[in-house]
Design a protein around this nucleic acid. Structure first.
Length: 117
DNA sequence: CAGTTGACAGTCC
DNA sequence: GGGACTGCCAACT
């Protein structure tokens, strides 16, 4: 490794992933942010890039506080996210019919969306 | 160095 | 209201 990452004084203190972890960790309890909002905070439009960071380093941050623009939790983790939402009293929007599956819920972004500074 | 993949978003039908 | 296509950005092979 002949200096794979040369520490320059002009480069940002954190990588893209590091910045994403800080933003997600800054989300207050009972609130949620969309991938696009997190990417916008980083000055980038890579909503998918944010999702990658969550898939790789997301295990160290409240990933359930990061949801899709549709108000739906990350794919493949609807059940895990639901347990956290109910535990944090996060505003959810469920279909009026009880026939709806538990994993068919949606978040009320109108009330749960956290606006960063 | 280029191609492919991926916890997405926005717009059109 | 829901489904399909395209655009964007970052990490991996």
């Amino acid at each position: 490794m002949t200096g794979r990452r040369m520490p320059s004084a002009g480069e940002p203190p954190l990588d893209f992933g590091g910045a994403v972890l800080l933003i997600v960790d800054a989300i207050p309890r009972g609130r949620v942010m969309t991938y696009g909002d997190v990417a916008a905070e980083l000055g980038s439009r890579g909503a998918r890039a944010v999702g990658h960071v969550m898939a790789t380093e997301g295990s160290s941050v409240p990933w359930w506080r990061v949801v899709r623009a549709d108000g739906r939790p990350p794919a493949g983790h609807e059940a895990e996210a639901l347990a956290h939402y109910r535990a944090e009293a996060t505003p959810l929007r469920r279909g009026g019919g009880v026939d709806h599956a538990e994993l068919d819920y949606r978040l009320d972004l109108a009330a749960a969306r956290h606006l960063p500074a």
